[in-house]
């Protein structure tokens, strides 16, 4: 239904291998990722380790490496990879007709994803 999903603009705004940020007033900033194999993901922009901005990390496969201490975070699950333990909330995302949509209640932090 219209209203459940927040349209955050065309896919072309984020080039492959990059991420961009979406500040949420009164909530957590969100990082939206475009991987090199053309998938899109959204996470809270905060590494579970020391809150590093994940949007600024290097993206490889479906993993981002946090720029502060090189934790590898899965873009699909938000979970730290390897021996590191921790998880960052993911925001349900869909791409439709070339536009990116985020689940509204997850963006607003009303529902833990």
């Amino acid at each position: 239904m219209i209203g459940d999903w927040l349209d955050i603009g065309p896919v072309s705004q984020i080039s492959p291998g990059n991420a961009r940020t979406l500040p949420v007033q009164g909530g957590e900033e969100i990082a939206v990722f475009h991987t090199l194999d053309n998938q899109f993901y959204a996470l809270v922009n905060k590494c579970p380790h020391r809150a590093g901005p994940l949007s600024q990390g290097i993206v490889h496969g479906s993993v981002v490496t946090c720029p502060l201490h090189n934790w590898n975070i899965s873009l699909k699950t938000g979970e730290a990879q390897g021996d590191d333990k921790g998880c960052v909330p993911t925001i349900p995302l869909k791409v439709d007709a070339g536009r990116i949509y985020l689940l509204r209640e997850a963006v607003l932090g009303k529902k833990a994803a």
Binding site: G3, L6, I8, G9, Q13, I14, S15, N18, R20, T21, L22, P23, V24, Q25, G26, G27, V32, V107, L108
Partner: peptide
């Protein structure tokens, strides 16, 4: 685009707009 946010979400205004 490396420096700019995609957009900003202001929940209050959005609630009112809908």
């Amino acid at each position: 685009e490396l420096h700019q946010h995609l957009a900003e979400v202001r929940p209050l205004n959005l609630e009112m707009a809908q």
